[in-house]
Design a protein around this nucleic acid. Structure first.
Lengths: 338, 338
DNA sequence: TTGAAAGCGATACCAG
DNA sequence: CTGGTATCGCTTTCAA
């Protein structure tokens, strides 16, 4: 009943071994493969583990084996539900065998580099990155570390190692072509600032590619960058409506921007999609709840997370990953605004 | 120009020390306190670190010091934006000095226990939990580990260690009182199943407490549990409308449920809030975007994360945390549905 | 301010 | 199938 007054330190493998009457090595083996000993020995060891409340020390194990099973993941922001989808996918596949360490870069390349450095200090066994643009140092550190790495934010042609994503360019091009096919001739494009943001940049390129292919002029006045948030979307809409001649469609890169534009258009009592079509990207359930429901691009972010994780596990398992670049595609979700 | 053909292993502290002409110990010290050596020595060491591309091995460091700086965090789900707010708060305060390991329990106590076990194996230095109900084993493991722990999902009276949260009970009671004050007399309450979900249970208790205080009957038929999702909200509404006498207000625990109820009420062309008031919890920007905008409870989830992290850091720093229970409060956001 | 020696608690490797 | 021994790359401790 009385607690031992001395501070009881955490049980070590040797304690378990002693109690079970075997060597530490045997305990160590059993922990990784319970079938490698006689059932009787196994039982004694399991009892000892139970009795002592032993929890294997992965820190010591990692040092000895020179390898952890921690996977590091870096997203621009944790708050954004887009990234969270991917995180959940990664987490679901990794399960409990590979702890997940997560950091956010705060949308900056320097932030990403700092996170990578911290992860390498922890000797993570693999890394998942959302960004596909990085500082030189980040690339060097990752290469020197020699650990598997999957990028997920864009189907980049020059991955550090592997990539599981979709093509932002193709998606934007398809969406623009969709608008063109429906008869729109003056299409505005708004995104967040493209500095350090390869995704926005690629989408703009896709938008322009679609115009070119349709032999339509690429008017610089129709491509703008706005601040994030609903206000940014409203701002974009206001700008496009002020142009002469007027635009007949607007493509906003990002779900919040698109929502902001739709709300602003409603406020101004502009007929959607009759007078003005509005489309966005990053479909979320929000898009179908607002009225009119927004036509958007849908990206398989959860599956990208799953795929990224399984590519890593394959490589950690010593098997080659082929192809090292996986395109999970995208989808246009037609709704009421275009 | 030619790369060394042999596989170059990662540089160790000894390599840096040799290059700088000092002992390993000096390098070790400098890494933690650059001011503890002569400026000249410091410079030589920094150059050596730069030249070798040395990244300190925290695995070895942790084993030697018997302590990591990894913080473990467990949420019911990563997908839910509610939890993500708290995660971001924790992450922002921990910064890059304390890597964050994140796991999801999948809303189950067993899942939480598995995650705790995994974290303890990694020898995390502290834990943040969302749940405030746990398996006995979870409690025992945490107690034995002797590491600081903050619970964040509910202002429980019996925390494992510390708690930074709000009172689900008080919040639900205040919201119910709000409805009563506005003249509603037959108020329905719907939540997700309360098994293993102390938050939902506390809210139901708060709802009942408000009724009792107003000397209103607590009709068991007015308290139901529904499945998650928009459909669950619609289901709840349908049920309440089928009752005789009819309800004049509905309180839904959870933002998605409330949204589902509002959409269903609109579909049925029920006058809100005239014939029926609808209120929810967990305010998100979604609530003000749908029409009519939903009156809800707002919880300071981001601040809870920040506070939880700073409580942990204080304790890790050897300083006492007082009070160990922090109530961050809540707020009723009055909008159009009540 | 600096260094030498002794662990930290596992695993790798080789014997038996 | 089982055990002994030498690391793994740091920090702690103590001495100079």
């Amino acid at each position: 009943m009385s607690k031992n007054a001395s501070v009881r330190r955490a049980p070590r493998m040797a304690d378990v071994a002693a109690m079970a009457g075997v060597s530490g090595m045997t305990v160590s083996r059993v922990l990784r493969d319970p079938t490698c000993v006689t059932p009787e020995t196994l039982q004694r060891i399991e009892q000892a583990i139970e009795a002592t409340g032993y929890v294997a020390n992965r820190v010591a194990g990692s040092l000895a084996s020179r390898r952890t099973n921690i996977v590091g993941l870096i997203v621009p922001s944790l708050r954004n539900s887009l990234f969270v989808e991917t995180i959940q996918g990664v987490s679901d596949v990794l399960g409990t065998s590979h702890p997940l360490m997560i950091a956010d870069s705060g949308y900056s390349l320097a932030g990403e580099e700092a996170a990578i450095r911290a992860f390498l200090g922890q000797r993570v066994c693999a890394v998942v990155l959302h960004n596909t643009t990085h500082t030189d140092r980040s690339r060097v550190m990752l290469r020197e570390a020699g650990i598997p790495c999957v990028e997920t934010g864009n189907l980049t042609r020059q991955p550090i190692d592997m990539v599981a994503s979709f093509s932002n360019r193709k998606a934007a091009r398809a969406m623009t072509a969709y608008l063109i096919a429906r008869g729109h001739r003056r299409i505005g494009f708004a995104s967040l600032p493209t500095d350090d943001n390869d995704r926005a940049e690629e989408r703009r390129a896709g938008y322009q590619a679609a115009l070119s292919r349709a032999r339509m002029p690429v008017d610089p006045a129709l491509t703008i960058e706005v601040a994030a948030g609903l206000a940014g979307g409203a701002e974009a809409l206001t700008y496009f409506l002020s142009l002469t001649p007027a635009v007949d469609a607007v493509f906003l890169s990002g779900d919040v921007l698109a929502t902001g534009a739709v709300l602003e258009a409603k406020r101004r009592r502009i007929a959607i999609p009759k007078r003005l079509a509005i489309v966005g990207t990053d479909d979320s359930d929000l898009q179908e709840r607002i009225s009119p429901a927004v036509t958007t691009l849908r990206f398989p972010r959860y599956d990208i997370g799953r795929r990224a994780a399984s590519m890593l596990l394959t490589r950690l398992d010593g098997r080659p990953v082929d192809p090292a670049s996986v395109d999970l595609g995208f989808e246009i979700v037609e709704r009421a605004t275009a």
